[in-house]
Design a protein around this nucleic acid. Structure first.
Lengths: 138, 138
DNA sequence: AAAGATGTATTAGTTATATAGTACAATATA
DNA sequence: TATATTGTACTATATAACTAATACATCTTT
C-alpha cells in the first residue's frame, strides 16, 4: 500500500488520506469495482484510528468516489456519467481558482497555456471518453 | 467594502477572507500600493474579531500579497517579478489538482480544453506581462 | 512630548480533530 | 445456525485549531 499520512503536517489526517485516494482513483491506481482495504486494515497500516478511516470512507461515498456496504466492504465506484450544470459550475470554480493562483505566481498567459496543454496530454487517456446516457450513441 | 464571511459555513473565517482578498488583488479590485482597511476597521465591518483579520494580514504578508507596518497600515504589495523553480512546482501542483477534479467531474478532454481557453481569455489582461529582472530587456 | 492610529502579543474560551475503547448491525461463509 | 468479517455507532478523552477580549508596541501627526 502506497498511502502515507503525516500527523504533524498541519493538514488533518482525514483530508490527506482522502486526497490520496481520490488521486489514486483518478490516475488509475485504483480501478472501478476494486475492493478497498477494510477500515480496520487501513487503520493498522497507517497506524491511525479506525474512526479516522471510517470518516474518510463516508465522505468519499458521499462524493460518489466509492461505494460501501456493511459486512461486504468498500469498492471503487463507477464514475459518474453525467456532466450537468453542477459540474459546469464546479469546473468554472476550479478554473477561476487556477487563474488566481497563476496571477500570484506571476505566470504569463503563454506559459500557463503551454503547461496546461502539456499536463492535459499526460491526462488525456484518463479523462472521460465514454458515451453519455443522454447523448445519442455513435 | 464587498467582503463577506459566513461563520457557519464550515470554512474558517480567516480562510474565507484570505481567499477573497487574494482574488480581489488578482482581479484588480485592489491595486498595487493601495492601502488596505485597518485591522480594526475591517473587523468592525465584518463583525468579526480583529485577531482574525490580523491573522489574515499576517499570512497574506508571508505570501507576499500585502506589506504591513505598525502604526502605518497594510498595503497591497508589488507583484513578484520572478517565476522560478518554486513557482513552477506550485503551478504543476495546481494543474495536477485541476486534472483530478476534472476526472471526478467526468469532463472530457476537449470540453476541459475549451473551458480553459475561454477562461484564459478573460484573464489574459490580468496575467503577467512585464519584463522579468533576469530576462534581457526588450 | 502627547495623542491617535496602526499592527502585534497575551490570555482565555470554544470548536474541530484525532484517538481509544466498546458495542452494534449487516453480510458472507463454514 | 454459528462464526468471522465488514462498516457503523457511541461515549469519553486529549490535543490542536479557531475565535474572542484585552493589553502592548510602533509609527505618524499634532
Amino acid at each position: 500500500m502506497w498511502y502515507y499520512v503525516d500527523p504533524h503536517s498541519g493538514i488533518p489526517i482525514y483530508v490527506q488520506l482522502k486526497e490520496q485516494i481520490k488521486k489514486a482513483v483518478a490516475t488509475g491506481l485504483l480501478t472501478e469495482g476494486e475492493q478497498m482495504p477494510s477500515v480496520r486494515e487501513l487503520a493498522l497500516q497507517l497506524t491511525i484510528n479506525p474512526n479516522t478511516v471510517a470518516k474518510v470512507y463516508q465522505e468519499l461515498e458521499r462524493e460518489g468516489v466509492i461505494q460501501t456496504a456493511r459486512g461486504l466492504g468498500s469498492f471503487v465506484a463507477e464514475r459518474r456519467k453525467d456532466f450537468g450544470l453542477q459540474q459546469e459550475g464546479s469546473l468554472d470554480s476550479a478554473l477561476e481558482k487556477l487563474m488566481v493562483e497563476a496571477y500570484q505566481l506571476s505566470v504569463d498567459a503563454d506559459t500557463l497555456y503551454e503547461r496546461f496543454v502539456k499536463k492535459l496530454t499526460t491526462w488525456k487517456d484518463r479523462l472521460w471518453k465514454g458515451v453519455r446516457d443522454n447523448e445519442p450513441g455513435h
